[in-house]
């Protein structure tokens, strides 16, 4: 049974990746959206003056971009399942519901990480040049990125499964998603900020933030895993 589940898991994941590589729907829309966010950031900071050090708010800006691009992507990821009733066909096959859930989470996580990994250097290139990263902890940022994205795609996959069946999909997803990921966001911004800005307590703050993110990931993934079966069958 375990190997059958493994086979199904790989099949769903492969299918999602093949479809994404073919249509590039999620990656393109998320990537361009992230780029557009950078323009908005530039406008927002344009009057800040040369005294202002963008590093102090870089963590917040990065996660703002991540959260809104992920909203966009999560919405897309479930729409094609719904398109021609494919989800029904999936549910009709002898597959355990958690397999569908984890395959979807891993798929979404992959796409999220790709877009985020592209966003960080672009962001650094546009906003952090000339501000020496003397703290040297910038290399820890990808760690927060991965930990945060696990939580985002976990809870996001569950919520997108719901919102795809509602009127006003995008808005409903944002409304459910943002308050629910608030703890994750706060922990992730705290840790990212500690990594970018540095300071005497930076490492302690960083790991404290990371601990929060990891704890949130575990709790919310378990909760989503438990609830998914009821949601997907409804």
């Amino acid at each position: 049974m375990a190997s059958a589940s493994g086979r199904q898991f790989r099949a769903i994941l492969r299918k999602d990746i093949v479809m994404e590589l073919r249509t590039k729907e999620m990656l393109m829309s998320m990537g361009l959206y992230a780029l557009l966010t950078m323009v908005v950031y530039f406008v927002a900071l344009s009057q800040a003056g040369s005294e202002f050090d963008p590093r102090t708010i870089a963590a917040g800006l990065l996660w703002l971009a991540f959260i809104f691009t992920s909203l966009l992507g999560l919405n897309r990821s479930l729409v094609h399942e719904k398109d021609q009733g494919c989800l029904e066909a999936l549910l009709l096959s002898p597959v355990d519901r958690p397999v569908i859930f984890f395959a979807k989470v891993v798929g979404n996580l992959t796409f999220l990480l790709i877009v985020e990994a592209l966003t960080i250097p672009v962001f650094a290139f546009l906003f952090l040049q000339g501000h020496a990263l003397e703290s040297g902890a910038f290399s820890l940022v990808p760690l927060v990125m991965v930990a945060g994205s696990i939580g985002i795609s976990g809870i996001g996959t569950l919520l997108a499964t719901m919102s795809v069946n509602t009127s006003g999909k995008d808005f409903v997803l944002a409304m459910l998603f943002i308050p629910l990921v608030y703890p994750l966001l706060l922990g992730a911004v705290t840790a990212t900020n500690a990594a970018i800005v540095g300071g005497p307590d930076a490492m302690m703050v960083f790991w404290q933030g990371m601990a929060w993110v990891a704890g949130y990931d575990v709790v919310m993934l378990l909760a989503s895993y438990g609830l998914y079966e009821f949601i997907v069958g409804a």
Binding site: M19, H80, D83, Q84, G85, E88
Partner: peptide, 13 residues
């Protein structure tokens, strides 16, 4: 097995 009026197939495959 189920055959529905919906094709239940992925259009991008």
């Amino acid at each position: 097995g189920l055959i529905s009026h919906n094709p239940l197939l992925y259009p991008d495959l």
